[in-house]
Amino acid sequence: MEKKEILENLTTAIIEGNKDMARENAQNALTAEIDPLEAVDQGLSKGMKVVGAQFESGECFLPELLMAADTFGTAMEIIKPTIEARQQQVNKEGTVLIATVKGDVHNIGKNIVGTVLKTNGFEVVDIGIDQSTLNIIEAAQKYNVDFIGLSSLMTTTMPNQKEIIEVLKEMGLREKFFVLVGGGPVTQKWADEIGADGYGDTAIDAVNVAKYLLTNNK
């Protein structure tokens, strides 16, 4: 099988959420001695970008996005050992820690943002719902992330987004991380008021804001 065909098959496997196809072609890529980073970049990631664009335009929904991400993971299980053996690194845009703040148990919005960030090349560390301020800051330091993404779906938990920014300042860590906020009642006005670095109305907004901040180092 030719290189072009293998890469196209990897892309198709992601778009269709076909794990068997992904496994087979990940193995084919290694057998054909395709650079594993090229297999990821020109095959798997290409498919993720297609699915991400379809999700944004409303052509597909969260289940398809999750299936694509799951299929990506399946192929990576086969390809990753070779990448590590060669001491190579997959290109990534940056690392984002995401969490729903203390007192809030909503997770779907956070999950959608996390998945869309992944499809756009970010590494995502999702520490879950109902996370205290110190848990979030500790995890951000532990994983050495570039961004802290904070979700809140209730007006009574939005102040916890503000608290995290204030505690980051108290601990002298504010300049170390970009802080992004989002969630149903959250607005740009609120983000400005509490001194967040970015706000996204939709998941793709979060991606665009994160890329802008990285590029412009703001």
Binding site: K102, G103, D104, M154, T155, T156, T157, P159, N160
Partner: peptide, 18 residues
Amino acid sequence: PAIEYIRGLPSVGQTPAE
């Protein structure tokens, strides 16, 4: 409707203010 502040303090979930 929900009240956002009580005596100037934000009504944060899981606190006495709430």
